[in-house]
C-alpha cells in the first residue's frame, strides 16, 4: 500500500459550505429553513481542514475558537487522560500513535471502553475492514470525526524510527 503524503492546506484555500437549501438533504420548501444557522456562518471562523466539515475540530478546541460544554448533568465526572498508545506494530503501514488526550477532550472513557476496545495493551485486534464498515475506530472516524481517507493522520509514526518512550505499546 502506498501512502500519499497529505498536502498542507494553503493559507489562501477557499472553503465553501453549501447553503442548507441547496445541500440536497434539507427540504427547500420548509419555511423554517431560514431560521437555522448556515454552516458557513459557524464554520468559516474555525481552523481549516481539507476533509470532513473542512474544520480541524481539535485545533478549534485547543485554540479556544470554541468552548463546548463538557457535561449537562451536574454530577458528571469529566475525565481526561494523556496517554499515547502505539498500534499496528506488525503491519505494513506506518505505526498508529493513538493519543488519548485529544480523544478525551471530546469523549468519555465509557464511550470506547470496554465494549469497543479493551483497556489492556495488546488485547485488541484491529482491522481496517472492520473500521471501514463502521466498527472500532470507524464508529466515529468516517462518520463524524476526520474520515478514513486521511490515512496518515492515524498511521502517523514511521516504522524505522524508535517509538517514543512516552507511549505504551499496544498490538
Amino acid at each position: 500500500m502506498v501512502l500519499i503524503a497529505e498536502a498542507p492546506i494553503a493559507a489562501e484555500t477557499v472553503r465553501r459550505w453549501l447553503p442548507l437549501a441547496q445541500d440536497g438533504l434539507h427540504d427547500p420548501a420548509n419555511p423554517a429553513l431560514r431560521l437555522l444557522q448556515e454552516p458557513s456562518v459557524a464554520l468559516s471562523r474555525l481552523p481549516s481542514d481539507r476533509v470532513g466539515n473542512q474544520v480541524n475540530w481539535v485545533a478549534a478546541l485547543e485554540g479556544g475558537h470554541i468552548n463546548p460544554r463538557t457535561n449537562i448533568l451536574p454530577e458528571s465526572r469529566v475525565r481526561m487522560i494523556d496517554l499515547d498508545i502505539l498500534l499496528n506494530l506488525r503491519g505494513g503501514t506506518p505505526i498508529v500513535r493513538f493519543p488519548h488526550r485529544q480523544h478525551t477532550l471530546w469523549l468519555d472513557c465509557s464511550n470506547c471502553h470496554e465494549h469497543l476496545f479493551k483497556s489492556k495493551a495488546g488485547a485488541n485486534k484491529f482491522s481496517m475492514e472492520r473500521i471501514l464498515k463502521g466498527e472500532q475506530c470507524g464508529v466515529c472516524h468516517g462518520a463524524v470525526s476526520f474520515p478514513l481517507t486521511a490515512c496518515e493522520r492515524c498511521h502517523n509514526t514511521p516504522r524505522n524510527k524508535p517509538p517514543p518512550a512516552a507511549a505504551v505499546r499496544g498490538s
Binding site: 459557524a42 470554541i66 463546548p68 460544554r69 463538557t70 469529566v78 471530546w106 469523549l107 468519555d108 464511550n111
Partner: peptide
C-alpha cells in the same frame, strides 16, 4: 459540537 463535546450526548 461547536457548543457541546461528544460526551454530553453520548455519555450524559
Amino acid at each position: 459540537r461547536v457548543r457541546f463535546r461528544c460526551k454530553v450526548c453520548h455519555s450524559d
